[in-house]
């Protein structure tokens, strides 16, 4: 079964259009959604949760159409963390735990307690005194504590220090040890996604430019460094994007289209995305 299946998804606003998004997240996998600010990542996530209504297309989550009546019950199985976490200001982490215990059928107080201590979150401090990182960690603790099968996270690691980001990634990694558990997370910290994702989807100006297995991407593409005069020798259809300096040129290429004599080097996800985004302009 697929955790998320999106076909032909469209949504128009007066100043922004998300058009024809098709993506599939198989169960047990982690997919990273990348894109610049305003590319449509959050819109896509909100459309998946049916928090905003779509104009066209279909979205099915854990096998259920997200506009079907039965989707309401399914929300219990989905842990959502949005880029800004809000809880009532006067509540403490312990209060939030009590409220959630009354909200979620499968709430695990034990799991919540272990998250709080793992994240070193104070139980008695009011939410208004939390730092951005602490707010985010609290939201993640809540999302993990109602036994979800799917996590949807919007910029969950931004605003956290590298150590904490790494720890959160470890938690996500552990979460998917269970093969029925899946994660869709958006981020513009590409290195984080490169660390844990199985699939990468790249949204640019409301369009999905890419949705592929991460390791295949890294195998398929490479970077070549050539003298500016030699640039023309590269087969045009193999070149995805280029960057020129007064001293030479650098190009992102499809490995299978370029002779190994060019010395194709390993690239990073970040470079693939940057070159592709520039190529679109």
């Amino acid at each position: 079964m697929n955790a998320i299946e999106i076909k032909g998804l469209c949504k128009s606003y007066p100043d922004f259009t998300l058009s024809d998004i098709n993506l599939t997240l198989p169960q047990g996998a982690i997919m990273g959604l990348v894109g610049e600010n305003g590319a449509g990542k959050s819109t896509t996530l909100r459309l998946i949760m049916n928090a905003i209504a779509r104009d066209a297309g279909s979205v099915s989550v854990l096998g259920v159409d997200n506009q079907a009546p039965s989707f309401a019950a399914l929300r219990q199985d989905i842990g959502v963390v949005l880029d800004e976490a809000y809880f009532p200001e006067v509540l403490t982490a312990a209060d939030v735990g009590r409220v959630m215990a009354g909200t979620y059928r499968n709430w695990s107080t034990e799991q919540y307690q272990s998250c709080l201590s793992r994240f070193s979150l104070p139980e008695k401090k009011a939410f208004k005194d939390f730092s951005r990182g602490m707010k985010m960690k609290l939201a993640i603790a809540v999302a993990l504590s109602h036994s979800p099968r799917l996590l949807i996270l919007d910029e969950a690691t931004s605003g956290l220090d590298p150590m904490m980001r790494d720890e959160i990634l470890d938690i996500f990694n552990d979460f998917t040890r269970e093969e029925t558990h899946s994660i869709l997370l958006s981020s513009h910290i590409v290195s984080d996604l490169e660390k844990i994702c199985d699939y990468i989807a790249f949204i640019h100006r409301g369009k999905l430019l890419l949705c592929e297995e991460k390791d295949r991407l890294l195998e398929e593409y490479g970077v070549v460094h050539v003298r500016r005069g030699d640039y023309e020798a590269l087969p045009e259809d193999a070149v995805i994007g280029r960057r020129e300096t007064p001293y030479g040129a650098e190009a992102l290429v499809r490995r299978d289209g370029v002779s190994s004599a060019f010395g194709v080097e390993r690239t990073t996800l970040e470079d693939i995305i940057l070159f592709m985004a520039k190529g679109e302009r």
């Binding site: 047990g28 552990d174 040890r177 660390k195 199985d198 699939y199 390791d215």
Partner: peptide, 14 residues
């Protein structure tokens, strides 16, 4: 497969 992927922190598909 899953345990190895998670322990090595690499993709399950790979």
């Amino acid at each position: 497969i899953r345990a190895l992927a998670k322990d090595l922190r690499i993709s399950v598909i790979t």
